Amino acid sequence: MDKVLSFHQGTLPLLISMPHAGLRLSPVVKAGLVEPAQSLPDTDWHIPRLYDFARGLGASIVSAEYSRFVIDLNRPDDDKPLYIGATTGLYPATLFNGEPLFKAGKEPSAEERAEYLEKIWRPYHETIRSELARLKAQFGYALLWDAHSIRSHVPHLFEGKLPDFNLGTFNGASCDAQLAGRLEAVCGEARGYSHVLNGRFKGGHITRHYGDPANDIHAVQLELAQSTYMEEVEPFTYREDLAQPTQQVLEQLLSAVLAWGETRYLR
């Protein structure tokens, strides 16, 4: 594999993870995708651009280069399901609408998937693990923000329209309750936006695995409705008029995370 991730090391105890922003495909996956999948519709589109302000806040940032259609970095390496009902696995077999992802007989082999696990999944998770360890060693605590987005209507996965800001803390297990409350307050004050805490999206493997409040590592997932910053249909155009006010809320959320950490640990 060539470059499998991008990493920027920041100056404050916050790491932002972007596991579904990648667009690269392995040759086997590219050749095997059905026509509707070739535009990579289930990508977390433009997430690095949407969070481009975060470097200025001092955050560390890790972003995937390969598409989730190759391997899903937000699933455990044993591929145990994270949600009851319709979902996608470590090696996705369907699109979000439930249709097959690959042409019949064109799925990657077990050997190819094992290579994706070793050369794409493991380096991404080692980067998260090592950076959280560095942050905790330097600051005494670490904050993890797992950044996602999804179409606001995906009937196969959830009913109706998704709220704009979907915060996930694995039902309170991945971060301190006061931090979650602070984030809910920010969302509640954001006029024109809806939000929910631990609704349909409670946090995937990254949030659940690395969030460890008892050991001063606090993790939050944000699943953002794509209608808040882009066109949700191909060619998935970034909308600056929508994105700019949404970025302001995102910056308030990340600033609240950092401020909570300072209050909790540095007083």
Rank of each mutant, 00 (worst) to 15 (best):
L157V: 00
T11E: 12
D52N: 15
S152M: 02
Q178V: 10
F236W: 08
K119M: 12
K80H: 12
V196W: 02
L250K: 10
T88V: 14
Q244V: 03
A243V: 07
E35N: 12
T94L: 10
Y91T: 07
A114F: 04
L183T: 02
P48F: 11
E262G: 13
L242Q: 12
K30L: 07
H8E: 12
A219K: 09
P235W: 02
P213G: 00
S60K: 11
R239A: 13
Y124S: 04
V70R: 04
A37R: 09
Q138Y: 06
W45H: 13
Q138N: 12
A142W: 03
S174F: 05
M230P: 03
G58W: 03
L179R: 11
L258T: 08
L23P: 01
Q138C: 11
G160W: 00
G204F: 09
S149G: 02
D241S: 14
I47M: 15
E111R: 12
H46F: 06
L250N: 00
H218A: 01
R68S: 10
I61R: 11
L222T: 04
D216A: 14
E240P: 05
H153A: 15
L117K: 15
I16Y: 01
L144F: 07
V220W: 00
V257N: 08
F236T: 00
D42E: 14
F170T: 12
G199Y: 07
T43Q: 13
L135D: 02
L14Q: 10
E35C: 00
F158R: 14
L183S: 01
E131A: 07
R208D: 03
T207W: 03
G199F: 06
I61Y: 06
I120A: 05
A256P: 03
F165T: 03
Y238P: 09
I217A: 01
E189W: 00
